[in-house]
């Protein structure tokens, strides 16, 4: 058998065996928003079945464009890709606070870069800035998905774009 044939055969065997190996590799993603919502269908109209915390590591099951079917702690659901990252998010203490959606002052996050601690130092040097007003702005205007849908319906606004 010539070297060319042997090489071709080796390449074919490698492809045949490596395929199942690659497909068996699990892919994990991390939740990169404070509260990531899992939905029953790949759409913002889908019912919220669970809320995941910042830094939660989920396994990717299925990919449907911008929507990813993921699983964690035996729960399955769809998440929008903008809520997920391939980077690992290392949380320090205070994860429970993140889960309950507590105010930023109580969060103790990864410790790298700009975080609540840096903000606190900046705030102490800029006492004229009113962070309580920012907290109010963030806290007050939170709506349930049904409320947004009702608002659209009432205003006769009918979506015509991609899946939501």
């Amino acid at each position: 058998m010539s070297w060319i044939r042997i090489s071709l055969l080796a390449a074919l065997l490698l492809c045949a065996f490596s395929q199942p190996l690659f497909s068996a590799t699990k892919e994990f993603l991390s939740v990169q928003v404070r509260q990531g919502q899992l939905r029953s269908t790949p759409s913002f109209l889908g019912k919220v079945t669970a809320t995941l915390a910042y830094g939660d590591k989920v396994e990717l099951i299925e990919d449907k464009g911008a929507w990813k079917m993921v699983t964690i702690r035996k729960i399955k659901g769809w998440m929008h890709m903008s809520a997920l990252t391939t980077k690992t998010i290392a949380l320090q203490a205070g994860k429970a606070n993140v889960k309950t959606g507590a105010t930023s002052g109580e969060l103790a996050l990864a410790g790298k870069g700009f975080n609540a601690k840096v903000e606190a130092e900046f705030k102490s040097k800029n006492k004229h800035l009113d962070y309580a007003a920012v907290d109010r702005m963030e806290r007050i205007f939170t709506f349930k998905p049904d409320r947004v849908q009702a608002f659209l319906k009432q205003g006769k606004i009918s979506p015509e774009g991609p899946e939501r």
Binding site: S104, G113, L129
Partner: peptide, 19 residues
């Protein structure tokens, strides 16, 4: 810049605007 870091930049910028 992660979304978290963008958020913290955003909060302080918001505080400056509201001032």
């Amino acid at each position: 810049f992660t979304p978290e870091q963008e958020y913290y930049i955003g909060r302080s910028v918001a505080a400056v605007i509201m001032n």
